[in-house]
Amino acid sequence: MTARFAVGDRVRVDDRTPPGHIRTPWYIRGKSGVVADMVGAFADPEDSARGGDGLPERPLYRVRFRQTVAWPDYAGDGRDTVDIEIFEHWLEPESG
C-alpha cells in the first residue's frame, strides 16, 4: 500500500455530502489540518457498509485540527486541538 500523505503534511478534508455510511464527521468536512499519524490501511467502511468487501484497503490517518479551525467561535484555549481518523480518499493536499 502506498500512502499519499506523510506525518506533518497539511491536508484538507473534502467538503462532500455523499449518501451512505460515512465515517468523516460533518463538522470537519472542508476543514484543514495536519497529518499526526498514519495508522495503517483498513477496509473502506463506505463499501463495507453496503455489502462490499471494502477492498482495496484505504490508508487511514489521524489528522489534527486546531479547534479554532473546526469551530470558528471556539471558546477555549487557541492551542486546543481535535484528532480525527480520516481515510485517504477524503483528504486532499492543502494548497495543492
Partner: peptide
C-alpha cells in the same frame, strides 16, 4: 473544557486539550 468542568476537571493555563474523535478502526 466546559464538559471537563462538569466532571470536576479544570486544567492549568497553558495545557492543550486534545480531543480524540474515534471515527474508524
Amino acid at each position: 473544557r466546559a464538559v471537563l468542568a462538569e466532571f470536576g476537571t479544570t486544567l492549568p493555563d497553558g495545557v492543550e486539550v486534545r480531543v480524540h474523535d474515534s471515527t474508524a478502526t
